[in-house]
Design a protein around this nucleic acid. Structure first.
Length: 270
DNA sequence: ACAGTAACCTGTTTGC
DNA sequence: TGCAAACAGGTTACTG
């Protein structure tokens, strides 16, 4: 489910509900996520106040007085603000309670993560090696060119590598490559700097537009209030295999690249 | 350092 | 219709 726009949508949604609020209880219904939820999480969070809700890549960072909660939504996770007395549904694994409202973590596939650190979260093992934020000034055509020239993998896999740039998952990689007119299988070191700059521009544009529309809901992504995102209405290629290209009418091709379904236009992308 | 693959898990869709 | 295989938004860890 969640790529950067969905995580950012979640961050903006939950922040006003929990910032400045004090944790009154923590309920772990199932600790078995990608890594186990720490056993002492309740002891760590109890009576602590949320100071900031940040995002790095697809990680949500909930900063408390002391320490930081690091959360990842994995493939199927979402976070909602619900009344504390609302009955828990299947796969509602964790509640962080702030009095009458609580932050509820739901994740059927359990690829998500909930971790705790007392240190600087940006130095955490999972975050320390990550590439630049795509919407930051550090992500430029020159940067991508320097990275691309020493790699030989297909550009789509390159673009989805978190050490190169973070937050670009399968949906937005497909969309960005279409908008930039670059074939997803093209070796990344055989792309001109000019075209890589175009790719950078389109990655930023597509992510910004998706955030404005509250993310993409293909199946089960919901915002903190349970509403879906609307960007799927704007998708040009993802999920449209064998349908006509919206720009030139050629039938879009769908194939697997690096174990991920990839859709592109043989006419527009080279 | 890089490239490729398996693995984590459940739910839904696809194909025989 | 029923059952099994394939596939789904992500990322780490391991192999060569």
């Amino acid at each position: 489910m969640p790529e950067l726009p969905e995580v950012e949508t979640t961050r903006r949604g939950i922040s006003p509900h929990i910032k400045g609020k004090k944790v009154t209880d923590v309920l772990v219904r199932d600790a078995r996520l990608r890594w186990p939820i720490p056993q002492d999480l309740k002891k760590q969070l109890q009576n602590k106040t949320v100071r900031q809700v940040q995002r790095r890549a697809k990680y949500l960072l909930i900063q408390f007085d002391h320490g930081c909660l690091i959360m990842h939504l994995g493939m199927s996770g979402n976070l909602r603000i619900v009344k504390t007395n609302k009955a828990a549904a299947k796969h509602d694994h964790l509640d962080i309670v702030f009095g009458s409202q609580c932050l509820r973590f739901h994740d059927p596939r359990r690829f998500g993560a909930v971790l705790w650190t007392d240190a600087d979260p940006f130095e955490h093992k999972l975050l320390a090696q990550l590439g630049p934020e795509p919407l930051s000034e550090a992500f430029t055509g020159e940067y991508l060119y320097q990275q691309a020239k020493r790699r030989k993998i297909p550009v789509k896999q390159f673009l989805m590598d978190g050490r190169v740039v973070v937050g670009v998952g399968n949906i937005y990689a497909n969309e960005s490559l279409f908008l930039a007119g670059i074939h997803p299988l093209r070796a990344c070191h055989r792309i001109s700097q000019r075209r890589l700059l175009s790719l950078v521009t389109h990655v930023k544009a597509v992510l910004e537009r998706a955030i404005k529309q509250g993310g993409t809901t293909l199946k089960d992504f919901v915002r903190e209030d349970g509403q879906p995102g609307y960007f799927q209405q704007s998708l040009k290629v993802y999920g449209r295999g064998n349908q006509p290209c919206l720009r030139c009418g050629t039938l879009l091709k769908e194939r697997r690249i690096g174990q991920r379904s990839t859709v592109y236009c043989p006419g527009c992308q080279s």
